[in-house]
Design a protein around this nucleic acid. Structure first.
Lengths: 156, 156
DNA sequence: TTGCTCCTCACGTCACGTGAGGTGGC
DNA sequence: TTGCTCCTCACGTCACGTGAGGTGGC
């Protein structure tokens, strides 16, 4: 049994796991309750459970998904439509990984999905690297400015 | 005569310099005309000139200022209120630099302004470095994901 | 004079913030 | 039963986008 398969089984066998109410979930994820409801409204997340009365219940995995949404927003500046695309792609990759041994998907089709997904991830990576380079340039410029102010202060 | 002073004189003596209409300016800066008017409404930029009829005319320096605003927005995620503070600080630094030899400002007061300005720039730098580190972490994670997909494709 | 560009309202949009008023759960 | 939390509208906000209707400049 491969490591990946073992992990998948472990996930599948995971105990009921405690679910958080929206207030606690929002605090943990560092976002507002409104944001959680809004992400759900757009279909970015779906709380793993709900109370008999209809209150949302969030799992650990839900919170990680929210964290990922925030990363895309704050680090990369993607809007929620773009994030939906990236998340959807990542979800498909996870599905393919999970269904790797059980041949639910044809090898041909599966390979096509993987190649397509890989392209999307690599496109994302080039976006990230461009951002990183721009940030490094900005930082160098900032250091120059700081150096000049230091010179003015030290001078005489 | 110091290099800085020579540069300041050069700026002061600069010829009328061609000013751009808002359409051209927007194209050059890579923003919309609406954005330029909005930045002006908030006091972030003031076009260097205007036509007799009241049309805005932008200088090269105006365009650089717009580019700086965009950097703060897209790279650092600052909002326009925060950007106003940073720009104002940079303006004060430039003024002090320009008035360095002509003793318009008392040495005591000038030094205090420089120290305060330096602190603000260094605070900004720590923000930038935090962002850079977060981005590096994100990139590392992304590379891991890409590696795993590659494994799935190559495997078998 | 004819286009093209500029002007000022002013309403729309995205990603939520912020109450309003009412129900659920320990 | 009393608080506290959750629910769904629904309007406000920030940084513009997008016409509407009118004037300026070559």
């Amino acid at each position: 049994v491969s490591k990946a398969a073992a992990a998948a089984v472990a996930v599948a066998e995971a105990p009921p796991a405690k679910l958080l109410a929206i207030g606690e979930a929002a605090r943990c994820a560092g976002v507002s309750e409104r944001a959680l409801r809004y992400y759900q409204e757009l279909g970015l997340i779906t709380p793993s459970g709900c109370s008999p009365g209809g209150a949302r219940r969030y799992s650990e995995a839900d919170l990680e998904r929210v964290a990922r949404i925030r990363e895309f927003q704050t680090l990369l500046g993607l809007n929620l439509d773009e994030i939906a695309v990236v998340l959807h792609n990542e979800d498909r990759m996870a599905e393919i990984r999970a269904a790797y041994h059980s041949q639910e998907v044809g090898g041909q089709e599966r390979r096509a999905l993987l190649v397509e997904g890989l392209a999307l991830q690599e496109e994302l990576r080039s976006t990230v690297m461009a951002k990183r380079n721009a940030l490094d340039g900005f930082l160098a410029d900032l250091n120059t400015r700081i150096g000049r102010i230091r010179d003015l202060i030290t001078e005489e």
